[in-house]
Simulated assay, not measured.
Amino acid sequence: MMGLFKRKSEKEKLQSKYEKLIAESYKLSHTDRKASDLKAAEADEILRKIESLN
């Protein structure tokens, strides 16, 4: 039962946030290019943090 409530590692949290930002960036790319670019930049920053953990 303990495995059911396993806490996410820092890397897993960042990966989840990265995927969310990429999805938002893609959606925004159809309507607001500038906002899309900002989300993509945020996602890139998160990706760098993930890589630094490795």
Rank of each mutant, 00 (worst) to 15 (best):
L14E: 02
L47V: 00
K6H: 09
R7A: 15
S36L: 09
L14S: 03
D32E: 14
M1P: 13
S29E: 05
D32N: 15
E42V: 00
D32A: 10
E10M: 11
K39N: 10
K8W: 00
E51R: 04
I22D: 04
K39W: 04
S25C: 10
A23W: 14
L47Y: 03
E24H: 12
S16D: 14
K11I: 05
K6C: 05
R7P: 03
S25Y: 09
K27M: 15
M1R: 10
S16K: 12
R7W: 03
S16L: 13
T31V: 15
A40P: 04
K11S: 03
L28A: 10
S29L: 02
L14W: 01
E45G: 11
I46D: 00
H30R: 12
G3Y: 11
H30M: 13
I50F: 02
A41L: 11
A35L: 06
S36H: 05
A35K: 05
R48Y: 12
L28N: 02
D37N: 12
D44C: 01
K27T: 10
S16E: 15
F5T: 09
S52H: 08
L4Y: 13
Y18N: 05
L4N: 12
A40C: 04
S36E: 05
E24Q: 15
K27Q: 10
L4P: 02
G3H: 14
E12Y: 02
T31K: 15
K17L: 14
K6E: 14
L14P: 03
S25A: 15
E51C: 03
R48T: 06
K11H: 03
A41M: 13
A41N: 12
A43E: 00
K27D: 14
A41V: 09
S16Q: 13
N54G: 05
Q15H: 05
A23I: 08
E42T: 00
